[in-house]
Design a protein around this nucleic acid. Structure first.
Lengths: 207, 207
DNA sequence: TATAGGTTTGACCAAATGGTCAAATGGCGT
DNA sequence: ACGCCATTTGACCATTTGGTCAAACCTATA
């Protein structure tokens, strides 16, 4: 049978440009507020071309979400870098902070998706996320049993970590306003990271 | 000049019903995703009637936001209930947690507004919020100088408090999924509240 | 150089949406 | 009882939006 001849270079470049533009627009306007016309304009292609690569707005959105999901999983894995709660939490919180800093748009889309009830990624919540949480709850409970952490409900700790780290993407504009109109510079961000880690570590440490 | 005869009872009831319906729809669909037709339907009035009371979708949204703003200020005032950092923070975090619990829809709208860059309430950020933060930063720095708190940057503490408390509204669906599909019951919520307070207090306490 | 088939694009469409309008309705003060 | 005027509502409109389509445009390969 005749071999298909997609042009990988062209496809990849166009899809990349479209997803990048889509991230901006979805982050700024929300799913419903984002228009395919605006995304195409920002990507520098006609709208019909966008629909050639992503038949529906839905599929484009899913592609954006998949990128975040990959990044989420990567950050999550840093929780397992150590058996010591101080090191594990330091690595995990740090990774989440860095994620919010390096992918603020994707992080905001992620948060917005959760706020809307996760209509597109319910299956992720039901499977991967549920399992990750159950498993790490056991780890945290082990630390508690070993007298290394206070007797807290692990889930509430995760909620605090998720919320606080994502805040640095979600509320970047608010933070900039409170910072004299300028976004947090790298030094301030690093300080935020280390103080966040320190507060949480002290908050949950046994003793 | 002829006296106007608005019917307060009718107006109040209709505006209340419309704002309540608007809260639901704005929270679930976002500003752009919410349709005046859907809001009117949920409020049980024809769409034209909605536009009689709120000429534009924008004005309706603003009315919703004003409700949240009032609630935000009320919770903020509980920060000032004591000169003791433990009591002040306990009251403030508790008030914010209760706000997220009692007004989850409004809280989500508030968070979404911030995430979109606060297009409707930039003036609130520039004035009231900026002043509140500046003033309470001074209070926190006073506590630090008095040796009652660790030397933290007050702003990062506020961000953590805002993020963590709002999480209980923003991520209610995610939490329910991780809780076997059922929302947090009152007992679990109270535990989340007290553990959140405890972690943060231990995290920032001097010593 | 001919051509298959991947890619580009302007024109187009049906549905949805925010908002308008004028006619109808009804309750309060005289 | 009556009229003023706040309120109600169905019909309507212009614009926006996601998506379609067919013709045009490459470019690798035979």
């Amino acid at each position: 049978m005749a071999r298909r001849k997609p042009r990988p270079a062209i496809r990849e470049e166009n899809e990349r440009a479209l997803i990048e533009a889509a991230e901006r627009v979805f982050a700024d306007e929300g799913f419903r507020g984002a228009t395919t016309a605006e995304i195409a304009r920002r990507a520098g292609v006609p709208k019909a071309n966008l629909h050639y690569y992503f038949p529906t707005k839905d599929k484009l959105y899913r592609s954006v979400i998949e990128r975040v999901l990959t990044a989420w999983l990567a950050a999550a894995s840093s929780f397992d870098m150590s058996d010591d709660p101080r090191l594990a939490l330091t690595a995990y919180i740090g990774a989440k902070m860095d994620l919010a800093r390096s992918m603020p748009l994707a992080t905001r889309i992620w948060s917005a998706e959760m706020m809307r009830g996760a209509p597109m990624i319910q299956d992720f919540l039901d499977t991967t996320l549920s399992e990750w949480v159950r498993s790490r709850e056991r780890v945290v409970k082990g630390w508690i049993a070993a007298g290394r952490l206070k007797a807290i409900e692990p889930r509430f700790l995760f909620y605090m970590i998720w919320a606080t780290t994502q805040q640095y993407a979600n509320a970047a504009h608010e933070m900039a306003t409170l910072n004299g109109g300028r976004p947090l510079d790298d030094k301030a961000f690093e300080r935020a990271k280390s103080e966040t880690i320190e507060i949480i570590l002290r908050g949950v440490a046994a003793g």
